[in-house]
Amino acid sequence: MENADNQDILKQAVDLLEDAEDCPRVSGTALMETWGKGDASGPAKRVSRAEFVSNNRSGNWLEKSLDSVGIERRYSASFGQEHIDNGKSVDYIPADLEWPVSIRMLRPKSALDIWGGPNDNWRMVDAVRDDDSVVVKLIDRFDQGTAELQIDTTLKLPVRWTRLYPAFGGVKSEVELVDLLVPRAWISGDVADIPTSGVIGASFGSLDPRLP
């Protein structure tokens, strides 16, 4: 059972998650790692990387593989979600189906099913402080699996999602967001001063209106 301090920490986490989508634009790198059965403490069995940018004002996002040249996923309200192979769209899929975990992490209020509602897979049950972050503990309502969502309290954004699969012998998966770039005004708290463009060091961009 959570004590009063943990309840306060969980409330802080919820407040950060509810406000995260007010950050207008975020870019960075997603590290996606998977561990095998009973091997969660050793090196990851599989690692992949992707560069991404998410624009919360336009709703557009782009994820670009750093392991497979020319492979991208992108979304815009006008064109929906597309898979891109060397500049050509190879697949259109419904707007909200299987968004990358990295993008859903940055839109926790609208795209992460962690709120304990009837259509959510996850429920937040506890939270602890860890240096400059808050780590939220979650339970899967179907198989009672567990997960953690780490929130950087300086960036005020989720930066790590870790899941354990007890039904599969303790398989572990993790998505970590690194090298995040956000507007200075977002970190300082001067939300009114956040520009509509000009994110610090945005990692990539395009004149294509479908892209962030």
Rank of each mutant, 00 (worst) to 15 (best):
I9K: 12
M32I: 14
G205Q: 10
T162G: 01
I103N: 10
L66I: 00
Y92F: 15
W122F: 05
R57V: 07
G38R: 11
T153Q: 04
A13G: 11
M124C: 06
K137L: 07
G70L: 07
L180V: 01
I151S: 06
R141I: 13
R57G: 03
K64P: 01
P108W: 08
D208E: 12
P100V: 04
W35Y: 06
D91G: 03
R184A: 12
P24S: 02
S68D: 05
L17Q: 06
K172V: 04
E98P: 00
D19M: 14
I194T: 01
V191R: 15
V47P: 03
R107K: 14
V182M: 14
D132I: 05
D132V: 06
V128C: 00
R46L: 05
E148T: 11
K11N: 11
F52G: 13
K109S: 14
D5S: 14
R46E: 12
D8C: 01
V53R: 05
I93V: 15
V101E: 09
D22A: 12
L211H: 13
E2H: 03
V90N: 04
K37I: 09
M1P: 09
N55H: 15
D15A: 11
T196Y: 00
R141Q: 13
D190V: 01
R129D: 07
P100C: 03
K88F: 00
G145D: 10
P212N: 04
E82S: 14
I187R: 08
A40R: 09
G70Q: 04
S206G: 02
W186Y: 07
I139C: 00
R46C: 04
V14K: 15
E174M: 14
R46T: 10
E18D: 03
P212E: 07
G145E: 09
E51T: 07
T154I: 11
A95V: 04
D190Y: 08
G36P: 00
V175Y: 05
D179Y: 03
H83T: 11
D143R: 06
D132P: 00
N121L: 12
D15V: 08
V134Y: 03
D113A: 04
W161I: 02
T153M: 13
D96R: 13
N3I: 11
V134M: 04
E98A: 13
A192V: 07
I194N: 05
I71F: 09
P108C: 06
D96L: 14
G28W: 06
E176M: 13
I103D: 03
I200E: 12
N6F: 05
D140T: 02
R123I: 07
R25G: 04
D85K: 10
G116R: 00
I71P: 00
E51R: 15
V125F: 01
G145I: 01
Y75C: 06
R73S: 13
N60F: 10
L66A: 02
R57W: 07
R123K: 13
A167R: 06
